[in-house]
């Protein structure tokens, strides 16, 4: 997604990326980034909270006009929760017992296989 923003921008089209992974987007380097410090999957506001969704989208749009230089990141002032305990859980290998690691490895392999099969089928259909 960050690569798409860069490509559009390099061709004269202003962009803003909305996302929840601050380091990943900033590592690539994009012109404008509205960062929401929320669990991955919520770049446009909190679930079932239309006020937060409108606020978040309006922030992103304002960034289109107001960013003074590329690599401008604005952090959404909304917080996901009062504490940061949720941040411990995402893909945290240190928290997983060996049997859970084995289960996740098998799960990820099967996701990759399914994606590969889907891609092969779609290519065959073209």
């Amino acid at each position: 997604m960050s690569l798409a923003a860069r490509h559009l921008e390099a061709n004269g089209i202003p962009t803003v990326v909305m996302g929840c992974a601050k380091d990943l987007v900033e590592h690539v380097g994009v012109p404008r980034f509205l960062f929401s410090d929320f669990p991955l999957g919520n770049p446009a506001g909190r679930p079932h909270d239309p006020a937060s969704q409108t606020f978040t989208l309006e922030l992103a749009l304002r960034l289109l006009e107001t960013a003074p230089v590329p690599r401008t990141t604005v952090q959404n002032s909304l917080r996901w929760s009062d504490d940061a305990v949720w941040k411990r859980d995402y893909s945290n290998i240190a928290q997983l017992p060996p049997e859970e690691i084995a289960r996740r490895r098998a799960e990820f392999d099967s996701v990759k296989d399914a994606a590969k099969a889907t891609r092969a089928k779609e290519q065959a259909a073209e």
């Binding site: 997604m1 960050s2 923003a5 089209i13 803003v16 996302g19 929840c20 989208l57």
Partner: peptide, 9 residues
């Protein structure tokens, strides 16, 4: 389009 909003999930 004059500008683009990209949603990175």
């Amino acid at each position: 389009a004059d500008a683009v909003v990209l949603l990175a999930v």
